Measured scan of single mutants.
Amino acid sequence: DELVREILGRCTCPDQFPMIKVSEGKYRVGDSSLLIFVRVLRSHVMVRVGGGWDTLEHYLDKHDPCRC
Results as ranks from 00 to 15, higher is better:
23 S>A: 12
21 K>F: 04
38 V>G: 05
25 G>N: 11
43 S>Y: 07
56 L>E: 00
58 H>Y: 04
63 H>Q: 05
57 E>V: 03
34 L>Y: 12
62 K>Q: 15
9 G>Q: 14
68 C>D: 14
16 Q>A: 09
30 G>C: 05
37 F>T: 15
39 R>E: 10
25 G>F: 07
6 E>R: 10
68 C>N: 11
39 R>T: 12
32 S>K: 10
37 F>R: 15
43 S>F: 10
6 E>N: 06
3 L>R: 13
49 V>L: 08
13 C>S: 03
64 D>P: 02
40 V>A: 09
24 E>A: 11
9 G>S: 14
60 L>A: 00
38 V>D: 09
50 G>T: 09
60 L>M: 05
13 C>E: 03
18 P>W: 02
61 D>K: 09
12 T>C: 09
63 H>V: 12
44 H>N: 07
2 E>M: 09
38 V>N: 03
2 E>R: 13
13 C>T: 02
67 R>T: 00
22 V>E: 10
55 T>Y: 12
28 R>S: 08
32 S>G: 11
41 L>R: 13
37 F>A: 14
65 P>T: 03
60 L>W: 01
26 K>M: 09
46 M>P: 06
5 R>N: 15
30 G>P: 06
17 F>A: 00
56 L>H: 00
49 V>P: 02
55 T>E: 05
10 R>T: 11
64 D>R: 04
57 E>Q: 09
12 T>W: 02
52 G>S: 14
13 C>F: 01
3 L>E: 05
50 G>P: 12
8 L>S: 05
46 M>T: 08
33 S>M: 11
37 F>M: 14
38 V>F: 02
50 G>M: 08
42 R>K: 15
28 R>T: 06
41 L>D: 13
29 V>L: 12
6 E>L: 06
17 F>Q: 01
22 V>C: 07
56 L>N: 02
11 C>I: 00
47 V>P: 01
50 G>S: 11
24 E>W: 07
2 E>W: 09
7 I>A: 11
42 R>N: 15
30 G>I: 02
20 I>H: 15
25 G>Q: 11
44 H>P: 03
15 D>M: 14
39 R>F: 10
62 K>N: 11
51 G>I: 05
34 L>Q: 15
59 Y>W: 15
38 V>M: 05
32 S>E: 13
29 V>E: 00
28 R>P: 00
3 L>Y: 09
30 G>V: 04
22 V>T: 04
37 F>H: 15
8 L>T: 07
44 H>Q: 14
18 P>L: 06
60 L>P: 01
7 I>E: 11
17 F>K: 02
23 S>I: 02
28 R>A: 09
51 G>T: 13
5 R>E: 14
11 C>G: 03
24 E>V: 06
66 C>Q: 05
5 R>Q: 14
19 M>T: 00
39 R>A: 11
24 E>P: 09
51 G>P: 09
14 P>I: 08
36 I>T: 08
29 V>F: 10
28 R>N: 02
52 G>V: 14
61 D>F: 09
25 G>I: 00
34 L>R: 08
48 R>A: 06
23 S>G: 13
17 F>G: 03
63 H>L: 10
65 P>M: 00
10 R>C: 03
14 P>H: 08
16 Q>H: 06
51 G>R: 10
7 I>M: 09
9 G>M: 11
33 S>N: 14
42 R>S: 10
34 L>H: 14
48 R>S: 13
44 H>Y: 06
2 E>F: 14
7 I>W: 03
59 Y>L: 03
63 H>K: 11
61 D>V: 09
65 P>Y: 02
4 V>R: 04
19 M>V: 08
25 G>W: 05
48 R>L: 06
13 C>N: 00
7 I>G: 03
44 H>G: 14
22 V>L: 08
16 Q>M: 08
35 L>P: 15
30 G>D: 08
50 G>D: 14
65 P>G: 02
33 S>T: 10
30 G>A: 07
32 S>H: 10
51 G>E: 15
41 L>H: 15
13 C>I: 08
42 R>A: 12
12 T>K: 10
34 L>S: 15
45 V>P: 10
40 V>C: 11
56 L>V: 00
8 L>F: 04
41 L>I: 15
40 V>W: 04
49 V>Q: 15
55 T>D: 07
39 R>D: 14
5 R>W: 11
55 T>G: 02
64 D>H: 06
3 L>V: 08
64 D>N: 02
52 G>T: 14
52 G>A: 14
17 F>W: 03
58 H>C: 08
19 M>W: 11
59 Y>N: 00
3 L>D: 05
49 V>D: 15
60 L>Q: 04
6 E>Y: 04
11 C>E: 00
49 V>C: 12
30 G>H: 04
45 V>D: 01
57 E>A: 05
15 D>P: 00
47 V>K: 04
14 P>R: 10
11 C>K: 00
4 V>T: 02
38 V>C: 12
44 H>S: 14
2 E>T: 13
34 L>D: 15
39 R>W: 04
29 V>Q: 06
68 C>H: 14
54 D>G: 15
23 S>Y: 08
67 R>P: 01
6 E>H: 06
63 H>S: 06
43 S>H: 08
30 G>E: 02
30 G>N: 06
65 P>W: 02
17 F>Y: 14
42 R>Q: 13
40 V>N: 13
29 V>W: 05
3 L>C: 11
35 L>E: 14
55 T>V: 03
21 K>R: 13
18 P>V: 07
28 R>Q: 09
33 S>P: 13
58 H>S: 14
5 R>L: 10
1 D>E: 11
51 G>D: 15
19 M>C: 04
34 L>G: 15
5 R>H: 10
11 C>R: 01
61 D>E: 14
22 V>G: 01
63 H>I: 13
28 R>G: 01
51 G>Q: 12
2 E>D: 15
18 P>Q: 13
39 R>C: 09
44 H>C: 10
52 G>M: 14
40 V>G: 07
23 S>D: 13
20 I>R: 13
28 R>C: 10
51 G>H: 13
36 I>E: 04
63 H>A: 06
56 L>T: 04
19 M>E: 00
46 M>I: 10
52 G>K: 15
13 C>V: 08
25 G>P: 02
7 I>C: 07
13 C>W: 01
61 D>H: 09
62 K>E: 14
50 G>N: 13
59 Y>C: 05
27 Y>A: 03
23 S>M: 06
8 L>G: 02
64 D>F: 07
10 R>S: 08
2 E>H: 13
13 C>D: 03
14 P>K: 13
49 V>R: 09
26 K>N: 08
16 Q>K: 14
47 V>Q: 00
11 C>Q: 00
31 D>Y: 10
29 V>I: 15
11 C>V: 03
35 L>D: 13
40 V>P: 06
26 K>G: 05
41 L>K: 10
61 D>P: 03
59 Y>M: 03
37 F>V: 14
25 G>H: 07
16 Q>L: 07
37 F>Q: 15
34 L>I: 14
43 S>A: 10
64 D>V: 01
60 L>S: 01
5 R>G: 10
60 L>I: 05
